[in-house]
Amino acid sequence: MILTVTLNPTLDKFYWVDELPLSLDKPEEAVLIRSDRSLTSAGGKGINVSTLLSCYGVETVALGFLAGHTGQIILQDLLARGVTANFVWMPGENRTNVTVIAKGREFHPLLIHEEGPPVSEEAMGIFLRKYERMLRRAEYVVLGGSLPPGCPPDCYRTLVQRAHRAGVRVIVHAGGEALVQTIAEGPFLVKPDVREELRLGDLPVSSLDEIVRAGRRVIEQGGQACLISHHITGDILVTRDGVWELEARVSLAAFKNLVGADDALVGGLLAALVRGHPLVEAARYGMAAALAATAVEEKLCLDTGVIERELDHVTVRRQGEG
């Protein structure tokens, strides 16, 4: 079973519009943007990974915090998608993240992300008890996304320690200080979220060389593997055994929605790992799932047949080999 942790779940709301005004900075005017299509789904990195795994028939349990009416909608959506949910209910209201995608600007959507409700010590205590129990059933745990207000920055580090004590492999799919603090604990895989800042710790990760350097630093500090997106169609996998470049040979014109592609990458990778594929091959599966996700308007492509077909477009090359 694969356990996913989403401490700050979200209701993802997508709007498609013909165009966005060039500037929203006109205080004297209200800006009305009409949308002819919208989609709503449960979200947050761990939740998205569970949703993808569920379509592969992989047993998965999503853990985290739910609050308010938004929490009810998130739960109903997850249950409808066949994901097993084991959440802590708390006062407040889960966040809603809005994405506005304008025609021809699919790579640069307008994003509005709420902060999410604060997590009390009491709620965190209940969560940790659930987490410890579920670890006994788990093979892998995914720690995904941002920390909610009130969560200490070493929260993920604590969760990695507890998972390791239970003999469970950990994938950290997050960003910033929360991720950096887990590296010394030796997680199985680190997948940094570099959307807000192209940095991993104090190292930049813009160019291929920078990514490889940052990935090697993760390995030196204890991480077993590091997977970093290079550009839209490329990923770099760094392990103790070497560096692999994954490349997708597809037309960028086919991309419709990039939100969720990173989570599809981790979900596809895990689905392949539990089927017995080695890590490098699993990363190729992950990239296929990510490509499939970008080619549909929904956040994730849940058609495993389509994902399998995308595999043909993904190549892997070990650095240093021709």
Partner: peptide, 25 residues
């Protein structure tokens, strides 16, 4: 089946159980 693992522990208080039954439906 509904894949909802909402549950309480032996030492969960009655007050919290009522809150959870209300929230979880």
């Amino acid at each position: 089946m509904r894949r909802d693992l909402t549950s309480v522990d032996l030492d969960t208080t009655v007050s919290h159980a009522i809150y959870l039954i209300h929230e979880s439906g």
